[in-house]
Amino acid sequence: MTAEAVQVIARARAARQTRSLVVTVVLAVVVFATFCVSLSLGDFKIPVIDVVKTLFGGGDHATEFIVNTLRLPRALTGLLVGTALGLSGAIFQSVARNPLASPDIIGVTYGASAFAVFAIVTLSLTGVAVSAFAIAGAVLTAFLMYVLAWRHGVSSYRLILIGIGIGAIATSITSYLLTKARVEIAQQALIWLTGSLNGRDWSNVRSLAITFVVLLPFMVFLVHQLRILQLGDETAYGLGLRVEVSRLGLIVIAVLLAAVATAAAGPIGFVAFVAPPIARRLTRSPGPAMIASGLLGALVVALSDLVAQHAFGDMQLPVGVVTGVVGAPYLMFLLARANRVGSGG
């Protein structure tokens, strides 16, 4: 073996890392810019430069009140929810080796919705109690899905099919509850079901931030294993990975991320589904491209919320109405282009 051979390997590795690093940095800048723009807009417009100053502690009292107290919790909730959904989708899609396996396609978020609607309609609950029900619903749905899909280990297609089945059941329950409810309450439940950031405060930010801090070490540890899991169960066993343990760990993390995001802002559709494939194509990463997926999730939610709040004059839409419209065309564009080049799938 020669030194040149080692250099070829080192160079190939460096090239891969550089690409992801550049994409990640650019995405982070774009997310921050969108974040600042969303803080500057509203009934009282503040120049973006003043927003940045205020964020770093240099604004006057009036802007500080508007930016830090009125607008920041909502914007931060949006970023964190988007990040959580992006990460959750990336883990689910990689574990199942299938882009359909995002939490908003398989049953997880539908389960959360059914429970939340039950809390709103039947138990007349609001606020934190609804969130708690949503988390319980997501976790219970995921557990049911995992147990039903288990047969000497969990295979990808069984997980997806059973997930879609459970999702359908959960949707039926939701519809049943809605048709039985009084109109005003049904309307309230419907807004929750679309996914909205309106009126989010620091308590939402706090619960999301705590979830991230707690899950981060596990995520770093398990995502390292996800790269091996992607090579197929047999190869992964051969490389000394305890396949079922790490798959279960990854699913638990992905479910918790999706559950907490749904509890905070309702089932914002399409983010978990669309962010990871875009991230993978931008970074040209064969792996899950976790950081980029999280950033893209945050970007999709932030942009959608900008549009939902400000593009229609006085009418403010729930963010979930817009996410699909923002995310889907870009994914379709990427798929169409990749197919023309011949490397799509």
Partner: peptide, 16 residues
């Protein structure tokens, strides 16, 4: 171990 039909993630390079 080399299994009979190993699967590679889409787009992965040889060195990776």
């Amino acid at each position: 171990l080399l299994p009979q039909s190993p699967t590679a993630p889409e787009g992965i390079t040889v060195a990776d």
